[in-house]
Design a protein around this nucleic acid. Structure first.
Length: 260
DNA sequence: ATGGTTGCTTAGCAA
């Protein structure tokens, strides 16, 4: 189906504000699939036409003001599923999946968790466990699966410029890291880390306190893949340049390239 | 320790 396949993930922090930046990036980088998070927009307002006009189909699970995820793809997205489909009441649009060229693709926006010890943090830990359970129930690690998105967890200190400053935060706390590692242990590979041993490469910098100029960043956005896909990864990168310039998102896109 | 910035929505929350 592909000679060379490129999949990316990007928390855009409002697709309304970032639309031109995203379409410019799509035309320049030309990924086969782009997973988006934090649309902050309902489905009916999503700019489908602007993406179809440059060759991308859209699967959208939006929400007003908060959250919202989408999958853009050159091929038709089939069997679109939204949410975690468990018994939990869930008004938050944080997960969408589609089958694209016979590969299961997920765009996920993990809860941030606000502060350790808060209700939001408990929701975060529970949400990660629910996603693990969802995958176990409906899929096998032998399936061809990509889980892409803003995980809101930095796996280890290589993923944090200032570990001491962040060690007790919701992005680095041991309980959040443990929940994420449990998810990975089911059978997902962090393809960026599989290609880069050293730290110092980040996907998010706070808007505040000159974090980007000081490179006070964290790697919290991931392309995850089951083994059959991960072993075909040619390269993985973070497009740090997209954090620069006029009105950037606070996140940079993460890209994986695969030889199928 | 607090405040710093952005986006959505319209003063305050979430990140």
């Amino acid at each position: 189906m592909y000679d060379n396949m490129k999949i990316a993930t990007w928390n855009v922090n409002s697709i309304r504000t970032r639309l031109n930046r995203v379409t410019d990036w799509l035309e320049r980088v030309s990924p086969d699939i782009l997973c988006l998070q934090e649309l902050k927009m309902t489905d009916d307002k999503f700019p489908v036409d602007q993406f179809t006009s440059i060759g991308y189909r859209c699967a959208v699970h939006g929400q007003k003001t908060y959250n919202g995820v989408a999958i853009l793809s050159k091929s038709d997205p089939e069997d679109i599923k939204k949410g975690l489909d468990d018994s939990e009441l869930d008004a938050q649009s944080r997960l969408i999946s589609a089958v694209v060229d016979d590969i299961h693709v997920f765009s996920a926006y993990f809860p941030n968790g606000s502060e350790v010890g808060s209700d939001k943090y408990e929701y975060k830990l529970k949400w990660i466990a629910r996603l693990s359970e969802y995958l176990k129930t409906h899929y096998s690690p032998d399936d061809r699966i990509f889980v892409c998105g803003d995980v809101n967890v930095a796996r280890d200190d290589r993923d944090v410029e200032n570990p001491d400053k962040w060690k007790d935060s919701v992005l680095c706390h041991p309980t959040a890291r443990e929940a994420f590692e449990n998810l990975l242990e089911w059978g997902l590979t962090d393809v960026f880390r599989a290609r880069h041993d050293v730290g110092g490469m980040y996907s998010w910098w706070d808007y505040r306190m000159l974090s980007f100029p000081k490179n006070d960043g964290l790697r919290i956005d991931y392309v995850l893949a089951t083994k059959s896909l991960a072993e075909k990864c040619l390269r993985a990168q973070i497009d740090r340049n997209e954090r620069k310039g006029n009105k950037p998102s606070d996140h940079a896109p993460v890209i994986g390239e695969f030889d199928f």
